[in-house]
Amino acid sequence: MTITGEIKSKVDKLWTTFWNNGISNPLSVIEQISYLLFIKRLDDLELLKEKKKARGLGERDNDPIFPEHKQRSRWSQFKNLSDAEEMLAIVRDEAFPFIKTLGTTGGGNAYTRHMKDAVFLIASPALLANVVTQIDSIPMEDRDTKGDLYEYMLSKLTTAGTNGQFRTPRHIIRMMVELMEPKAREIICDPACGTGGFLVAAAEYLQELEDSDGNKVLNAPGNREHFNKEMFHGFDFDGTMLRIGSMNLMLHGIEDPSIEARDSLSEDYADLKEAFTLILANPPFKGSVEKSTIAKDLTKVISTTKTELLFLPLFLRLLKNGGQAAVIVPDGVLFGSSKRMSEK
């Protein structure tokens, strides 16, 4: 993580601002910040296109992100408003509903497609004005800063542990990715992706990977497009995690990953087989699932309702021939009362 102490201090101050104004659930804080970051990102993209057009470097934009009647929803339009009440009305009643509709027409990206159940919790004009000013003061011009900044916010979930949402330590994730040495045409899946940490680490590894001549492998023909649209797949059934994970990937330079709402162990998705070359995962190994909902092919391998056992045959089913996996399992699966699974 490369962000400076100054930026960390700004993020900490932003976090404290939410807590002091009654929004104390860490997941809720990250979600509210994510909405505003996304609105800002859309405006940044629009401003970039407008600058290119002004310099004669860009074609006429026949499909702007913000149509004429939505110009008030742009970050650059509302951020300097002196009337906090007006700012809240615009963001809550115009900008936020606008980004929710972006994913309802079959278009949009992984983030907007999971916005259906999103809720804007900022009810105080003063809080919104304060937060907008703080976010606008954080430098986020390059991908590395944006990604590291978001990762720093997500690190607060590790200590908070709200709703059981603990994250795998980044150094463990990086070690697993480095052991797997992913290639430029991998098809990678995390079937319990949460905040997307494993997929992000694989992306960071590949963004730095060079061939024998010292050239970035992603610059080879077709590799960048595969990276942006076909390489990364994540599943989760928690809407908040789907949005946070999608935002995390987007801020790390992955344009349109496939992040889907699904219960990976369910019979509803039992037809997904031999689809991926690499699986990276730390699934939720606790408790049991309802037996009637479990995919029948999984219970044929082992008759159980325990997730720590069911995910193992799932990994095998999802992998292509010759595929590989790096996954975290409880020690009991290999060495304890559940050792029979390792002997199968």
Score class of each variant (00 low, 15 high):
L36P: 11
L36K: 15
L36N: 14
L37K: 01
L37V: 09
L37E: 07
L37N: 02
L37F: 15
F38V: 00
F38N: 04
F38A: 04
F38I: 07
F38R: 05
I39T: 12
I39Y: 10
I39W: 10
I39E: 06
K40H: 03
K40E: 13
K40G: 00
K40S: 15
R41K: 14
R41F: 06
L42F: 08
L42V: 07
L42W: 01
L42H: 05
L42R: 07
D43S: 14
D43L: 06
D43H: 14
D44G: 04
D44P: 01
L45M: 11
L45T: 00
L45A: 08
L45C: 01
E46T: 10
E46V: 08
E46P: 02
L47N: 09
L47M: 05
L47H: 00
L48N: 04
L48F: 11
K49C: 08
E50D: 01
E50K: 11
E50R: 13
E50A: 04
E50F: 01
K51H: 07
K51N: 08
K51W: 12
K51G: 05
K51A: 14
K51L: 10
K52Y: 09
K52E: 07
K52D: 06
K52Q: 13
K52F: 13
K52H: 14
K53E: 09
K53L: 13
K53G: 03
A54G: 08
A54N: 11
A54E: 09
A54I: 02
A54Y: 07
R55V: 02
R55F: 15
R55I: 04
R55N: 14
G56C: 03
G56H: 05
G56W: 10
L57M: 12
G58P: 00
G58R: 03
G58L: 01
E59K: 15
E59W: 13
E59I: 09
E59N: 13
E59D: 14
R60V: 10
R60P: 00
D61K: 07
D61Q: 03
D61Y: 06
N62W: 07
N62D: 13
P64S: 07
P64F: 01
P64E: 06
P64M: 06
P64A: 05
I65T: 08
I65K: 10
I65Q: 07
I65P: 03
F66W: 04
P67Q: 08
P67L: 12
P67G: 04
P67M: 08
E68N: 03
H69L: 09
H69A: 11
H69T: 12
K70C: 05
K70V: 04
K70S: 01
K70N: 06
Q71D: 09
Q71G: 10
Q71E: 10
R72E: 15
R72G: 02
R72I: 14
R72N: 14
R72W: 04
R72V: 10
S73T: 12
S73F: 05
S73R: 10
R74C: 02
R74L: 01
R74H: 02
R74D: 09
